[in-house]
Every structure is written in structure tokens, then in C-alpha cells.
């Protein structure tokens, strides 16, 4: 089942509003000790969990480690989970918390997006490749200049398709603050990257 993360993956796999009855039933089964029912939650949320972890860590293997850790933490604490709530926001919050702790323990910032960008681009030819590299470098540098939360907010909103409220749940801040961060990040990026916007079109 190879694929990539992005807004489509997020909308396909995570319910947006009320708790899904199948999901609530699966959680109730896990709470009764049927650990195998947890598989439904793993399948449903591993993509979005990975997307969030990657936004926090900027590193593919680290993101896999963290999403795995977050599922184990969720399983260990599922007894206290209220099945009237949605699993997604709770789980994504765990991913963010674990991701921030993980990054602190490793003492590094997100860098792989820039380092790996060339891998996915195929073979566009030397001139086009140089142009692509320059574009990536400019965008990565502009993102790197943003405060950490603004960078995560703009990526989670624009690239991964999460709503302001969902991002607020993950980061433990209000939706209004998320929208403010998003506004600030957009302003900064538009200012820095205005000369590239035509290239991207």
C-alpha cells in the first residue's frame, strides 16, 4: 500500500466531526481487553499520525519511530479515553508531544525535507534540476526562518489539510491562535517567496 501523505490522505482516513460508531465500538472493545480491535485505529490514523510526526521532526525514520511510540502510548492509556470523543485529536496530541520530546532528546531541528527533496523529483535534466534545487532551497530557508509553531501550523494547514481547530487540538493552543500563526506565517512566506510564486505556477 505505498503512497504519500497529504490532504487527500488526511481526508480519506480521519473523520472530521462526530466520533465514528465503528471507531467508538473498536475503542470500547480495546478497553474490554480485546487488543486486536486496536488494529482499526492503527490503520485509520497511521497516515495522519505520520504526517503530524513528520511536521514536528522533519525526518522520515524519526517520524516512524514517534508514530509507533504514540500508538503504544495510546494503547497503554486507552482505558481512560472517553468513547464519546474523537480518537484523532487525542492521538495527534500524543504524536505532537512525543515528537517534541523526541526532538529535544536528539537536539536537532527538521532538516530532512530539504536534504531529501531531490530524491522525489525524478530526473528533470541538469538545468531544470538546478532550478528545482534553487526553488527548494529558497522555500526551505524561508520555512526555516519561521518560528517553530508558525512553520508547523502553515504546513499542517496548507499541506496536510488539517483544520485550524484540529491543529489547535494537537498543539494545545486555541483555534484563534492557530489562525493568527497561520496569518503571520503566510505573510512572511509570501514576502520572502513572492519572486518564486510565478515559477511554482
Amino acid at each position: 500500500m505505498p503512497g504519500s501523505i497529504g490532504p487527500e490522505a488526511r481526508h480519506d482516513s480521519a473523520p472530521a466531526e462526530a466520533p465514528d460508531p465503528h471507531e467508538a465500538a473498536a475503542i470500547a472493545r480495546v478497553q474490554r481487553g480485546e487488543a486486536e480491535a486496536f488494529d482499526l485505529l492503527v490503520r485509520r490514523y497511521m497516515r495522519t499520525g505520520y504526517a503530524v510526526a513528520f511536521r514536528v521532526l522533519g525526518h522520515r525514520e524519526d517520524a516512524e519511530d514517534v508514530v509507533q511510540e504514540a500508538f503504544l502510548a495510546a494503547l497503554a492509556n486507552i482505558g481512560s479515553f472517553d468513547t464519546g470523543r474523537r480518537f484523532g485529536p487525542w492521538f495527534h496530541r500524543i504524536v505532537v508531544t512525543r515528537g517534541l520530546n523526541f526532538r529535544k532528546s536528539r537536539g536537532r531541528r527538521a532538516t530532512e525535507a530539504l536534504d531529501d527533496a531531490g530524491v522525489a523529483s525524478g530526473d528533470p535534466g541538469p538545468a531544470a534540476a538546478a532550478e528545482q534545487d534553487a526553488l527548494r532551497t529558497s522555500v526551505a530557508q524561508a520555512l526555516g526562518r519561521l518560528p517553530e509553531r508558525q512553520r508547523m501550523v502553515v504546513q499542517l494547514f496548507e499541506l496536510d489539510g488539517f483544520s485550524g481547530a484540529e491543529i489547535a487540538g494537537m498543539l494545545g493552543i486555541s483555534p484563534g491562535t492557530v489562525r493568527w500563526y497561520l496569518h503571520e506565517a503566510r505573510q512572511a512566506l509570501r514576502g520572502t517567496l513572492a519572486h518564486l510564486q510565478e515559477t511554482a505556477r
Binding site: 500500500m1 504519500s4 497511521m46 525535507a113 530524491v119 522525489a120 527548494r136 504546513q155 499541506l159 517567496l193
Partner: peptide, 26 residues
Amino acid sequence: LARLLRSADGSAGTRPMDWDRLHDRI
């Protein structure tokens, strides 16, 4: 803006991901 960000989003956005492997691992 999303198109620009995606261009710098190498490994998360466009590199294929083996979800079955990640699932089995978890």
C-alpha cells in the same frame, strides 16, 4: 503557497511511503 511548500516537502510529501510496512511494525 501550497505548491511552493510542496516543492520543498521532499520526503513527506512526494516520496512513496510503504504503509503496510509501517502498519506491521506498529
